[in-house]
Amino acid sequence: RRRVRAILPYTKVPDTDEISFLKGDMFIVHNELEDGWMWVTNLRTDEQGLIVEDLVEEVG
């Protein structure tokens, strides 16, 4: 499975499927959606939700 790491922190918009995260958080990518969004699991918090790919980098 594809893994990505947050390069910046992010605070979710209330009442959306987004998740908040810290710089350095690792995610497993489940689905890549339109307009650069990804459905992921945050490995630190075990939370699932949407993040935008501009805020993460690939992990080898």
Results as ranks from 00 to 15, higher is better:
Arg1Asn: 13
Arg1His: 15
Arg1Val: 15
Arg1Gln: 15
Arg1Met: 15
Arg1Trp: 13
Arg1Gly: 13
Arg2Cys: 07
Arg2Met: 06
Arg2Val: 07
Arg2Ala: 06
Arg2Phe: 07
Arg3Met: 15
Arg3Trp: 14
Arg3Lys: 12
Arg3Val: 15
Arg3Ile: 15
Arg3Leu: 15
Val4Ser: 02
Val4Gln: 03
Val4Asn: 02
Val4Asp: 00
Arg5Thr: 07
Arg5Tyr: 08
Arg5Met: 11
Arg5Cys: 08
Ala6Cys: 04
Ala6Glu: 00
Ala6Arg: 00
Ala6Phe: 02
Ala6Ser: 08
Ala6Lys: 00
Ile7Tyr: 06
Ile7Gln: 06
Ile7Pro: 03
Ile7Arg: 11
Ile7Asp: 02
Ile7Lys: 12
Ile7Leu: 12
Ile7Ser: 06
Leu8Phe: 12
Leu8Ile: 10
Leu8Ser: 15
Leu8Arg: 14
Leu8Ala: 14
Leu8Asp: 08
Leu8Gly: 14
Pro9Ala: 14
Pro9Ser: 13
Pro9Met: 08
Pro9Tyr: 07
Pro9Trp: 06
Pro9Cys: 09
Pro9Ile: 05
Pro9Val: 06
Pro9Asn: 15
Tyr10Arg: 04
Tyr10Cys: 03
Tyr10His: 12
Thr11Arg: 09
Thr11Cys: 08
Thr11His: 10
Thr11Ile: 13
Thr11Lys: 10
Lys12Glu: 04
Lys12Tyr: 03
Val13Thr: 15
Val13Phe: 10
Val13Ala: 13
Val13Tyr: 09
Pro14Thr: 08
Pro14Leu: 08
Pro14Asp: 10
Pro14Tyr: 07
Asp15Val: 05
Asp15Trp: 10
Asp15Leu: 11
Asp15Phe: 13
Asp15Ser: 09
Asp15Met: 12
Asp15Ala: 10
Asp15His: 13
Thr16Met: 03
Thr16His: 03
Thr16Leu: 03
Thr16Tyr: 02
Thr16Pro: 01
Thr16Ala: 03
Asp17Gly: 10
Asp17Asn: 13
Asp17Arg: 14
Glu18Gly: 04
Glu18Ala: 05
Glu18His: 05
Glu18Leu: 05
Glu18Ser: 05
Ile19Asn: 01
Ile19Lys: 01
Ile19Tyr: 01
Ile19Leu: 15
Ile19Gln: 01
Ile19Val: 08
Ile19Arg: 00
Ser20Lys: 02
Ser20Met: 02
Ser20Arg: 02
Ser20Asp: 08
Ser20Gln: 03
Ser20Tyr: 02
Phe21Gly: 00
Phe21His: 02
Phe21Val: 04
Phe21Thr: 02
Phe21Cys: 07
Leu22Met: 12
Leu22Asp: 11
Leu22Arg: 11
Leu22His: 11
Leu22Val: 11
Leu22Cys: 07
Leu22Trp: 11
Lys23Pro: 10
Lys23His: 07
Lys23Phe: 08
Lys23Met: 11
Lys23Glu: 13
Gly24Lys: 03
Gly24Cys: 08
Asp25Ser: 01
Asp25Lys: 00
Asp25Asn: 00
Asp25Met: 02
Asp25Phe: 02
Asp25Pro: 01
Asp25Gly: 01
Asp25Ile: 02
Met26Leu: 15
Met26Gly: 04
Met26Arg: 06
Met26Phe: 11
Met26Glu: 14
Met26Gln: 09
Met26Pro: 04
Phe27His: 02
Phe27Trp: 01
Phe27Asp: 00
Phe27Ile: 03
Ile28Phe: 08
Ile28Gln: 07
Ile28Val: 13
Val29Glu: 01
Val29Leu: 05
Val29His: 02
Val29Ser: 02
Val29Cys: 03
His30Val: 08
His30Trp: 15
Asn31Leu: 14
Asn31Gln: 14
Asn31Asp: 15
Glu32Pro: 06
Glu32Tyr: 09
Glu32Trp: 06
Glu32Gln: 12
Glu32Ala: 10
Leu33Met: 11
Leu33Cys: 09
Leu33Lys: 09
Glu34His: 14
Glu34Val: 12
Glu34Phe: 11
Asp35Ser: 11
Asp35Val: 07
Asp35Lys: 13
Asp35Ile: 06
Asp35His: 12
Asp35Tyr: 11
Gly36Leu: 04
Gly36Glu: 03
Trp37Phe: 10
Trp37Cys: 07
Trp37Met: 10
Trp37Val: 07
Trp37Gly: 06
Trp37Glu: 04
Met38Ala: 04
Met38Gly: 01
Trp39Asn: 05
Val40Glu: 00
Val40Gly: 04
Val40Tyr: 00
Val40Pro: 00
Val40Met: 00
Val40Asn: 00
Val40Ala: 12
Val40His: 00
Val40Leu: 01
Thr41Trp: 07
Thr41Asp: 02
Thr41Cys: 08
Thr41Gly: 03
Asn42Ser: 10
Asn42Cys: 08
Asn42Thr: 02
Asn42Ile: 03
Asn42Phe: 02
Asn42Ala: 11
Asn42Arg: 04
Leu43Gln: 08
Leu43Thr: 10
Leu43Asp: 04
Leu43Tyr: 06
Arg44Ser: 07
Arg44Thr: 06
Arg44Ile: 04
Arg44Gln: 05
Arg44Pro: 01
Arg44Phe: 05
Arg44Val: 04
Arg44Asn: 07
Arg44Glu: 06
Thr45Gly: 03
Thr45Gln: 02
Thr45Cys: 03
Asp46Arg: 14
Asp46Gln: 14
Asp46Glu: 13
Asp46Ile: 11
Glu47Ser: 06
Glu47Pro: 00
Glu47Asn: 05
Gln48Phe: 11
Gln48Val: 14
Gln48Ser: 12
Gln48His: 12
Gln48Cys: 10
Gly49Phe: 02
Gly49Pro: 00
Gly49Ile: 01
Gly49Asp: 00
Leu50Gln: 08
Leu50Cys: 09
Leu50Ala: 10
Leu50Val: 09
Ile51Pro: 00
Ile51Cys: 05
Ile51Leu: 09
Ile51Asn: 00
Val52Gly: 14
Val52Glu: 12
Val52Gln: 15
Val52Lys: 15
Glu53Phe: 11
Glu53Ser: 15
Glu53Leu: 11
Asp54Ile: 09
Asp54Leu: 12
Asp54Trp: 14
Asp54Gly: 13
Leu55Glu: 03
Leu55Gly: 04
Leu55Ser: 09
Leu55Asp: 05
Val56Ala: 05
Val56Ser: 04
Val56Met: 08
Glu57Ala: 07
Glu57Tyr: 07
Glu57Phe: 06
Glu58Thr: 11
Glu58Tyr: 10
Glu58Trp: 12
Glu58Gln: 10
Glu58Leu: 09
Glu58Asn: 12
Glu58Phe: 09
Val59Leu: 12
Val59Ile: 13
Val59Gln: 07
Val59Asp: 08
Val59His: 08
Val59Pro: 06
Gly60Pro: 14
Gly60Tyr: 15
